[in-house]
Design a protein around this nucleic acid. Structure first.
Lengths: 209, 209, 209, 209
DNA sequence: AATGAATGAGTGTTCATTCAT
DNA sequence: AATGAATGAACACTCATTCAT
């Protein structure tokens, strides 16, 4: 947004923490739009109002910058998934709680979440360290969700067999919903969608009878 | 004379077509492994056995090469989705046919499919022409699947309301399955999974009662 | 010498070997003038008439380019030192042969030799791999020269004791001569100097009596 | 009042001088270890305990900092060489005095000396101002040493002819000894080596007979 | 007296792309 | 039909240097 030439004006002493945050925000936005490889440090610099050199004062390198963002989101999700298996509530409520919390991330940190999601296809055939780290996180998420499903089966809310498949179903629904939410520019009502997602998850599309 | 010339031209044509195919195959494999940005024309050249310069005889540039691949997959999928609404069969069979055909792509062209999937997150906030084109394709796929869902509703197999949501559910399942298939290196049995996907789609995970 | 703008004209197809040699020559000259750190790849590019990118087609990186040059000279010297201990001649002749050959390098490859010499101080407290490799070479040279000295002692031409010191004396003379030769721009007659060096080495500056 | 002000100024002066010295010491150590180009102002800052910005309060820039160090050593050497021609003693004693004093610098300021030596190869083909200045110093040193040699000839201690060559011999010995001393990490006994250097200088390596 | 915060100007290196042969 | 040879335009990253506080 800001012109490169206008950079000088920003010589404000606002403190390192502030700079860190500003840069992270800007980076999240740019990474979400163009992906890791499509984003240049100059992009981040322009978006943040700092110079590329300044960014290196706060982050070791591009990888570091990206993976800090990525890990933030991975950790937030992990926390949600972890808690959803720990909460002392019946399965149905825990499920709803989890879906709600996860969906809210779309509203609070859409950029971060998109950057997170966009990285996933590359993780599948992990090559770089970044990708290997990502793969580990994705697997860890999956594991917790499977656990959640198992407790649902134990409680008799879910049918027997295939906890892994139920996890696949739920993750698919969540990712797909995120995709749609983004591609419709956040126009979809999240709260309402949570109900729909849960219903689809539990009853599927079939007529049931 | 003319005969010979024609024959030669034919041979050349064949040669040219052959080269084209070889390059496309090689490119699909490399793009799938390293993604668009991670792949260099040198990579494609080495994988295809041609020189980088030769590739430019057959494709305008890297974008062109990639988007031809991408479109190939997009078209194949489109065809499947189109046909699944046209086939003179009951919904249930058309659904199974569609899921089967789509899943088979994993076995016949996994590389192409991965490359196709990896592109999706960026399409959501389309910037470049490549991405805009992609977005159009994804939307077109979605439209057809919604149509399919509507016929399912009309036939009374699917519950009333929310064809778009059912599409979201099915697409989510398909993508997620593809993800898992790739990250487990194709070890999953596709045919068996088709049943599971359809069941999950129709009945969800819930106990039903 | 050549302007950057003039680069385009050089688009000649002269073969890879030719390019290699041209670049090596240019690099030797620039490294000799400005040292490893003071030399940029752009410097080498301009001096060679190629673009920086072209240089990377022939050499992996700056280190590679430099160490190839450096090793060439190190190996030539090693060869001279090695042979000076092997030749079936009396010590005096072998010594003369060695000093002659070494001195000639000044005339045939002054740039290379200067680049080689300039690197030595850094090798002393070797940090980088380049420097460690250099240190090994310098030590290996020294070892051979000490051997040569020992044979001189054995033949009774050199006084007893202190082969290592004699090596120090000779190496000091050679390096110092090279220094002077370079700083007087090659105006000194090499052949004549050989006699002088050998005399100084054998008799020192003292009056003797 | 004026008194107090003056005292404060003095203290500040002292503080400033102290800082200057601390920085110079730190810089000498770092330059000696990594060379001019290999050393960053950040390195100097860390080694000195000050911030990079602080260094600029005491020195105009990196070049200034380095050349002050360099000149310090150049001047100390110059002083030694100067005095060695002036001292009212016979040549042999003046020579010993000079070699002793010069060698002691290795023990008192090894870092400075290494930095000084490392600069020499580039001075030969002086380009920058730094190098031209250096060249002037080296030449001036040489001139004095030649003078010393001439007095040795005049006294009949050195053979006729070739004062310049004798200077080359002595300088070569001194530099080479410094090299060895550094590369053996200061393990060599300096006092003992002085005798050896003088003997080699006067008698060479030859058997004499 | 000292520094935290910031940047301009490079530096090595990569890569898509071109073109004469 | 194919490529060897070459480069312009970027890109990640570094570093000497400045300046308000």
């Amino acid at each position: 947004m800001a012109e490169v030439g206008a950079r000088k004006k920003l010589r404000q002493r606002r403190g390192a923490d502030h700079a860190r945050d500003v840069i992270l925000d800007a980076a999240a936005s740019v990474f979400a739009q163009k992906g890791y490889y499509g984003t240049t440090m100059e992009d981040v610099a322009v978006a943040s109002g700092y110079s590329p050199a300044a960014i290196y004062k706060y982050f070791k390198n591009k990888d570091d910058l990206f993976s800090r963002l990525w890990n933030t989101m991975a950790d937030r999700l992990q926390e949600i998934f972890d808690e959803s298996t720990r909460l002392p509530m019946p399965f149905a409520m825990r499920l709803r709680w989890m879906v709600t919390r996860a969906s809210q991330l779309l509203e609070t940190s859409p950029n971060l979440l998109v950057a997170f999601i966009a990285q996933r296809p590359y993780a599948a055939r992990a090559r770089s360290n970044l990708e290997k780290q990502a793969l580990r996180h994705y697997r860890s998420h999956q594991a917790r969700i499977i656990e959640l499903m198992e407790s649902g089966i134990a409680e008799g809310v879910l049918r027997e067999g295939g906890a892994a498949d139920y996890a696949l179903l739920l993750i698919g629904l969540l990712y797909e919903f995120a995709h749609r939410w983004v591609s419709e520019d956040g126009q979809i009502d999240v709260r309402q969608s949570v109900d729909r997602i849960i219903e689809l998850f539990l009853r599927g599309a079939g007529h049931g009878s």
